[in-house]
Design a protein around this nucleic acid. Sequence first.
DNA 1: TTGACATATTCCGATATGGACATATATTCC
DNA 2: GGAATATATGTCCATATCGGAATATGTCAA
Lengths: 117, 117
Amino acid sequence: MARAATTTDAFNAVAEPQRRRILVLLKGRERPVNELARALGITQPRTSKHLRVLREVGLVRVREAGQQRLYGLDARGLQPMHVWVVGFEQYWNENFDRLNEYVKKLKQKEHADGSRS
Amino acid sequence: MARAATTTDAFNAVAEPQRRRILVLLKGRERPVNELARALGITQPRTSKHLRVLREVGLVRVREAGQQRLYGLDARGLQPMHVWVVGFEQYWNENFDRLNEYVKKLKQKEHADGSRS
DNA sequence: TTGACATATTCCGATATGGACATATATTCC
DNA sequence: GGAATATATGTCCATATCGGAATATGTCAA
């Protein structure tokens, strides 16, 4: 077997930088293909292909508008990524001291009991 | 050019499910290769190769301990992913209504003016 | 219909992948 | 030294990728 297809899930689709940039460009407003291609500085066919991948994993939607097709963001598919990566938030500043982690765990337990902001 | 190497960055390294599972298993405690292989239900060579990738992108560290090598998590490399995906948090519940987005934008502006909890 | 424009698809080549298997390297113990 | 254990590396294969270039499809307007 080779590497998993880019259309397997959001993780694979978004591993490609240009596709990440496309999603960022789609925040807030829809855009036609050519506008995206120009913004990214890549060819139109390549842009269409990236959009196809994003469409297949459901991160993007198309809407026909005359002779152009407006692409819009559907960020819901990013939620699994969000959940997964947020699970590591507490380890950013890890300095690889085992005892340190114990302390951290204890702190979390305290937190679980009473405090709220 | 083919697809970017898995060792290019965290995004690519983590696109592979087994590698994600490895990182999860490494939360909190270090583990030797064989333990990881058993936990994942994959062969030892495959596990070593996944660990190599994770090491090359800096998501994991090795520590020699007698005849075994203990792998530990270094989550700092996941921060770029975190930053990127968190930027989409506000779009989870997007229902793709343009007007809806305008409303959302206005709300953000209100927020910017006077703070409320 | 013809032409202009916007977008999608196909063909090509180079490359790196993940998995299985065999084997190499390294450490410990006798 | 030699055996046992733990880990890393190398080879094989099938497959999907990204990129470019050419071309197909689709829509509008006169």
